[in-house]
Nucleic acid binder design. Structure first.
Length: 413
RNA sequence: GGGAGAGUUCCCGAGUGGCCAAAGGGGGCAGACUGUAAAUCUGUUGCUUGAUAGCUUCGAUGGUUCGAAUCCAUCCUCUCCCA
């Protein structure tokens, strides 16, 4: 089809990614005419990125595909202080070593998603300039430009003013602003992007650049990835949905997206996949059970972006095998148990606790009592069912908990 | 530094000597209904036990008592008021 190359700005807007902008027209124009350098910060507060970061990564990629240059700032310096935005309690202080380790993990994960070759994107740790700052110099050069009165009215401090805010956290804003200033000076970085909770910090950075260099830079924030009822995406009972497959299995990752609310599918397809808008519009027409098609696409696309095509296909295949025919698939979640461990046979509850399918025997009893436990499609009726070598068919036993949770238990020598 | 108050189970929050493994709500899990959705209804929600029962738990440590989440002492953390 013959279409004019769309402005990234329009793409981002059309997909509903943009939350707030400092200067809509100017940003649009800038992105149209120039190759712009922009940055997004990542706080290395855990040893893996998670779904909460994913949206930022998607945006960076959109921008990069349009020819702009992303700088990923790893907040090795700012993490030493901790961002109070949107928090009700103080962040736990982290050691320098932990932060450095985490930063290195981020680097690896980001590299899979953004092209860092030939300087097409940069990854910089703000520890490089923040850690060796001289306190008095910093106060005189940077501190002068900040009005405490104004800072106190900033949205990000509001909730903290009620509960208490320590001086160290209050400084976070200055540090982040300083990042912007540095990047502007060294890399001609003109735009800062971030989650919508970063708005106050971004504005502060823009002000600082203006005061120091009398030049105009811009800011743009993105919708936070939330469910239709307003909850943050990426949290499960067990914790965050990590992008690291060691911390969050690919199969579970796929299922996480496969099970989103009807109301959220279309929005998510727009926000975190690169499926063309025309196709999404077709999905939008679906109703009732047919919406599942959109969910499958969402799960597949997101898994592919994060874990690669191979893994995504495998997860999809496993899901179809499990839910379609209740069949067995090589990629479904599995655990092994040795013949030694099994011995003369184990009680069903002991076995399932051993392989980690249930957290305790009491939990297992509850499950059985309520008719929610199955072995190879057979409902388990008794607590003291004995599992022996003979219970395994071809050395495999499929345990099922409720409707969606499966585990393949393999018997090995 | 002085004064007042708070810390309860995954979260919020009741409980001020035994009837407390601890009300209620949220969340989780399971069942029914469905579309691997939502909503709704039902059950369940510390651990061990077939069950009786036992064990661990109410910021920490000691103490009083036949008996403590509850009373006392010390300590830690947080909030508020004064300086």
């Amino acid at each position: 089809m013959f279409t004019k190359m769309a402005n990234v700005f329009d793409t981002l807007k059309e997909r509903g990614l943009i939350a707030q902008l400092t200067h809509e027209e100017k940003i649009r124009e800038l992105l149209e005419k120039e190759k712009v350098t922009f940055y997004i910060g990542f706080d290395p507060t855990a040893d893996s990125l998670h779904v909460g970061h994913f949206l930022q990564m998607v945006v960076m990629r959109h921008m990069q595909l349009a020819g702009h240059r992303p700088i990923a700032i790893i907040g090795g310096g700012t993490a030493m202080v901790g961002d109070p935005s949107g928090r009700t309690d103080m962040r736990q202080m982290m050691t320098k070593e932990t932060i450095e380790y985490n930063a290195s993990r981020f680097k690896e994960q980001l590299s899979r998603f953004i092209d860092f070759s030939d300087g097409k994107a940069l990854m910089i740790n703000n520890a490089d300039w923040l850690l060796n700052l001289n306190y008095v110099e910093f106060l005189r050069d940077i501190g002068v430009h900040f009005s405490v009165n104004r800072m106190l009215t900033a949205e990000c401090f509001k909730s903290r003013l009620e509960r208490g805010l320590s001086f160290i956290e209050f400084n976070y804003m200055l540090m982040q602003s300083y990042d912007f200033l540095k990047l502007y000076e060294k890399y001609n970085c003109k735009i800062q992007l971030g989650g919508d909770d970063q708005w106050s910090n971004i504005i502060a950075g823009i002000d600082l650049v203006r005061r120091v260099h009398q030049d105009e830079v811009y800011g743009m924030t993105f919708t936070l990835l939330t469910t239709s009822d307003g909850k943050k995406m990426g949290k499960t009972q067990k914790g965050a949905v990590w992008l690291d497959k060691e911390k969050f299995p690919v199969y579970d990752f796929y299922q996480y997206w496969r099970n989103v609310d009807d109301q959220d599918v279309i929005r998510f397809l727009k926000l975190i996949t690169f499926v063309p808008m025309e196709e999404i519009k077709e999905y939008e027409k679906l109703e009732g059970a047919a919406i599942n098609e959109a969910k499958k696409r969402l799960a597949y696309e997101v898994t592919k972006l994060v874990h690669g095509e191979e893994e995504a296909k495998a997860a999809q295949k496993a899901a179809e095998a499990v839910f379609g025919g209740g069949g067995i698939d090589a990629n479904m979640p599995s655990k092994t148990i040795s013949e030694d461990e099994l011995g003369e046979g184990l009680g069903i509850l002991d076995l399932l606790v051993k392989v980690g399918f249930i957290p305790s025997k009491a939990e297992g009893k509850r499950l059985i009592a309520q008719g929610g436990l199955y072995l190879d499609k057979e409902k388990v009726e008794s607590f003291d069912l004995k599992i022996t070598k003979e219970s395994f068919k071809d050395n495999v036993l499929i345990a099922r908990k409720g409707k969606k949770s499966y585990l393949k238990i393999e018997l090995v020598k």
